[in-house]
Design a protein around this nucleic acid. Sequence first.
RNA 1: UGCCCGAUGGUGUAACGGUAGCACAGCAGACUCUGAAUCUGCUUGUCUAGGUUCAAAUCCUAGUCGGGCAACCA
Length: 546
Amino acid sequence: MSETTNFIHEIIDGDLASGKRTEIVTRFPPEPNGYLHIGHAKAICLDFGTAMKYHGKCHLRFDDTNPTAEDVEYVDAIKDDVRWLGFDWGENLFWASSYFDKMYDYAIDLIKLGKAYVCDLSVEDFKAYRGVPTEPGKEPAGRQRTVEENLELFAQMKSGDFEDGAYVLRARIDMTSPNLHLRDPAIYRIKHAEHHTTGNTWCIYPMYDFAHCIEDSIEGITHSLCTLEFEVHRPLYNWILETLGATQPQQIEFARLNLTYTVMSKRKLLELVNEKLVNGWDDPRLPTLCGMRRRGYPAESIRNFCAEIGVTKTESVSDVALLEHHVRDILNENAPRRMAVLDPLKVVITNYDENLVETFELPNHPQKEEMGTRTVPFTREIFIERDDYLEDANRKYKRFTIGREVRLRGVYLATCNEAIKDAAGNIIELHCTIDPESKGGSAPDGRKVKGTIHWVSASEGVEASVNLYDRLFKEENPAAEDGDYKELLNPESLKTINGIVEPAAIAGAGTTYQFERIGYFCTDKNTTPETPILNRTAGLRDSWKG
RNA sequence: UGCCCGAUGGUGUAACGGUAGCACAGCAGACUCUGAAUCUGCUUGUCUAGGUUCAAAUCCUAGUCGGGCAACCA
């Protein structure tokens, strides 16, 4: 990972230089209520990457303060994704829920300081008191309660004497503040719900604004990095810790990641999954980390992408082409080469023995000898790509046309002599001859051919189901368009076809190959030896404008 | 018509008062047993108007545009 810098690191540099901080502690605080996507990857890279850069620590903390939204199902998935991305929290795994006792005590401190009170207003009524941004709000009657009354009521809230919504604990700040978050925000609510770690111990739960700053403070977080929408929460974050006299981390906000041709909001992703518009959270078309993993995107390419887009406060939409560039960049280095034909056209080598199976040792990587070779069988009947033959080809077309000699990748020079057509005029078969002297792919007389095409033996090749993935949406920024974003789904985002692959392309789930001249393909988790399943990770760049 | 934040090529980002650079995308060419990779070249930018200064993308003022904020969500 290349060392990067950004405005946050400049702040940290300053804090270190001034002595305000002597060590750096960050945190990645997901709520376990959904799957991680590439937007989280940006945050993870920032949080963990910053800690690594400054030889500090990064905590993985589950921000589980709302039991009705959360589920253990997500906890393991989140851990898997963070690990897969390449980060290690070591001993530093934390839970907001493990601080519930301390948070309760802090709430009592606030009450004793006269800085919190129990409020019996309904949601609607409080809304009326809070007012609108352009005018000051009014003070709820609950503000007049004595400390003793508040202590008593809060204790009753905790012991389960009240229904959900009957009371709420509010910070007593300023009902006239131009920042609505400071108009006596709720900090504890009653929720008779079982929590996935604390069970039924609690029926009151702290709100984000109260909980998060305390979590950060308890853990000794020095820099609490979050996305831009929390900017207006920062005064409250600071107010709570100042009022409590607790140590103060610094909250710094950055712009969240947006990507072209996809959506990133949890709500929309959930809809796509629930309405079966995609096939689950790990559908390879989704921007979820599990989806990208299944698609075959290397974790390293996602890290490189995140490093390159940088961290700023400017709201932006990054081009998915940049992500794809990094995917190809890594895969070009690492993916062994294989041959596969996705749109087969049969070719008969008329001067080749029909019982012969010759084998060739072809390199796994053209530039990396150390990656070794694999064995590829060649026979009289092979398949080539249908668009590697063109009847009326001009001089720029480098593939088969009648009378033109091309190279069959790695084996022989071949000349196409005849195209066999059916009654409707469709080409169903090509008849070619090879030059036996050109075994290995080059002629002894040194003559050159312009084109090299890939092929697979008809009898030795293996049929595979191939998922051709494309962009999920037709529009660059579906979330920004008017109307229903689901209308903008790309109907061709998934095409499943049957292709023929060379025997050495059959591998276990997760293996990625480059099919030469086509693209990168990853073996799907549902693959079997009988019916191999391959996912197209990315196509190769194609500068041929034929 | 309240408060907060932001604005640099098509996209993302750098320049911290001193030559507007990098990457992706695009275009053109070289090379090539992948029309891939690699290599070379090219196109395109400081939101507007004032001000400060020898000098402004950078500092100041005003405006414009975009985003966020009025859950007992995070």
